[in-house]
Amino acid sequence: MRERQAIRQRRRAREFEAFVAGAAGRLLHASTLLTAEPADDNPRARRLLTAALARTYADWDRLRGEDPYDRTRQELAARFARGAWHYRQHGGGVLERLTPQERLVLVLRLYEGVAEEQTAALLGLPAERVRAICTRATAAMRSGPRAPAGPAREAATP
């Protein structure tokens, strides 16, 4: 009995390690985009991903055909959304000028390719709201850097 359990645990660990080896890089990048940290200095993103992966590992035997990447991405998004107030500080990341909600929608929709309806269901928002947030976030990213405030801006306009 114990031997079978040990074999099952080793197989589970190998399967999970293989999953992490293939998916961790992309998930870390998504987590880094969410936290708006620089790619080379992202401790909050790493903690967020570690917690999501730990949850996936805990549920590994119950996945039963469910995509572990999708499950981990859902957990990552949920953890970020629950603790989004932690991520309001700007860290120099590419999406730093967006709000946490805008970052979450943009990462899920554009970087991860999650359908609008799935994103809406995951976040508990209407699909129209997800569409509006994504449109606003995309426009903000396309608009370029924000103009400086104060005297420098006034001097630039005749």
Rank of each mutant, 00 (worst) to 15 (best):
W85Q: 13
L104C: 06
L122V: 05
G91N: 06
L95I: 07
G83P: 00
A77E: 01
L76Q: 01
H86Q: 15
A121T: 09
E75Q: 12
R97G: 11
P100N: 07
R97F: 00
L123T: 08
A77T: 09
L122A: 14
V94D: 09
L76F: 05
L104D: 08
H90T: 12
A78C: 00
R88M: 07
Q101V: 13
E75C: 01
Q101M: 15
R103S: 03
R103P: 05
A121P: 01
R109E: 08
V114I: 14
Q101A: 12
A115D: 15
R103G: 05
V114C: 02
G83M: 02
G83I: 00
A84L: 02
P126W: 10
G93I: 07
A115M: 04
V105M: 04
Y111A: 10
L106I: 01
A121Y: 01
G93S: 05
E75Y: 06
F80P: 02
T99P: 04
Q89S: 13
A127V: 10
V107Q: 07
E116A: 09
L110Q: 11
A78L: 14
L104G: 08
R97A: 03
A121H: 08
Y111L: 12
L106G: 00
G92K: 05
A81Y: 15
V94M: 06
E102W: 02
L125G: 02
V107H: 05
L123M: 13
Q101H: 09
A78F: 11
A115C: 00
E75V: 03
G113M: 08
A77K: 03
P100E: 10
L122K: 04
A78R: 14
A81R: 15
E96T: 06
L106V: 04
L108E: 06
L98T: 04
Q101K: 11
E75S: 12
L122C: 09
L95K: 02
A127E: 12
R109G: 00
V107R: 04
G83C: 02
L110H: 14
W85P: 00
E75N: 05
L108F: 00
Q89N: 05
V105H: 03
W85V: 13
R103V: 04
V105F: 12
V105C: 04
G92Y: 05
Y87F: 15
P126T: 07
Y111G: 00
V107W: 07
W85R: 15
R88C: 07
L125V: 03
L95Q: 02
R109C: 08
V114T: 13
Q118N: 13
L76C: 08
G124D: 10
G113T: 04
R79M: 11
P100L: 09
L104F: 01
G113F: 08
H90C: 03
L110K: 04
